[in-house]
Amino acid sequence: MDTFVQQLINGLTIGSIYALIALGYTLVYGILKLINFAHGDVYMVGAYMGFLIAVYVFGSQASIFNFVVVLLGAMAIAAIIGMAIERFAYRPVRKFSRMTTLITAMGMSLFLEYLFTFIFSGVPKTFPLLIQNDNYNLFGEVTISTTQILIFMIAIILMLGLEWIIHKTKIGKAMRATSHNLNSAKLMGINTDFVIAFTFALGSALAAAGGVLVAQYQPKIFPLMGLMAGLKAFVAAVLGGIGNVMGAVLGGLLIGMAETFVVGYGHYVGIPSTYRDAVAFAILILVLLIRPAGLLGSNVQEKV
C-alpha cells in the first residue's frame, strides 16, 4: 500500500509536467490543426533559459524569490521564442498543405535541438537547486518532497490561470472563436494572426514552466531532453482529446502514472522497466485505434 501511494505521488509529479507541455500541443492543435513538433524543444529551451538566469543572474543561490524570477523569466523568454517560431517558420507555410506545416515543425524541432547542442554542447548541465528540498513523511513509508509539492502547486496555479484566460478574458474568447472556425473568426473582426501568436506564447510559457520545474525535480538538462518528453506530452494530449484543455491535463497525469507504474510494478507481469518509454506509445496506438477523439474529446463525424 505504501509503495502504491508513493508511486502514485511520483507518477502525478511527472504527470503534472507532461500536462503542462501537453497544454501547449492542445492549444496549438485546437487553433491551427498543427502538431507542433518543436513544442517539446521549447520545453528544453525553457529549461536552459531558467538555467542561464539561475546561474548567471543569481549565481545558483537558492531562495524563493530567485526561484520565482527564474520561473517567470524562463516563461517570458520562451513565450517570445514561441512567437518568433510561429512568425518566422509557421506563418509563411500556413497557406500550404498541412503536411508542409508538419514538416516545417519537424525542421524547427531539429533546428532548436542542434542549435542548443552547438551552444551548450550535448553534455548535460546540472540545474542549481533553487528551493531547499526536504522530504516530509506523510504516513508509513510514504514521503513527499518540497519539490514535488512545488510542482503540484505551480502546475495547478498555471492550469487555473489558463482556464481563466480561456474562459474569462476577451483574448480567451477570441481564441475559442478562432479554434472553432478560423475564417469566420476573421470575418467577425478578430485579428486571428494575433490570436495565433498569443496561443503560441501561452503554450510556450507553460512548456517552459514545465522545463524549469522538471529541472528542479531531475536536475540534469540536455539539448535532447525535449524529444521524449515532447512526444509523451503529445500522447497525453491525444489521450485526453486533442484540442481539449482539461483532456490534456487528464492525459498528462494518466501518462505520468502509467509510466511510473510500469517501472514500479511491470516486472510482476513480465514487463521490464526498460519498457518505460514504450508505454506512452502503446497507449497512443490504442487510443488512436479505439477512440481517436480521446477520452474527453467530442466525437466529431468526419466530413467527406
Binding site: K33, I35, M99, V235, V238, Y275, F281, L284, L288, L289
Partner: peptide, 23 residues
C-alpha cells in the same frame, strides 16, 4: 490498423509503432 487513420494521426501512429519496435 494504422492506415485507417489519416494525415497527422497516421504520422503519429507510425512514429509510435517505430519507437515501440526499437524499444
Amino acid at each position: 490498423p494504422s492506415l485507417r487513420l489519416k494525415g497527422d494521426y497516421l504520422a503519429i501512429a507510425t512514429l509510435g509503432f517505430a519507437e515501440i519496435i526499437r524499444i
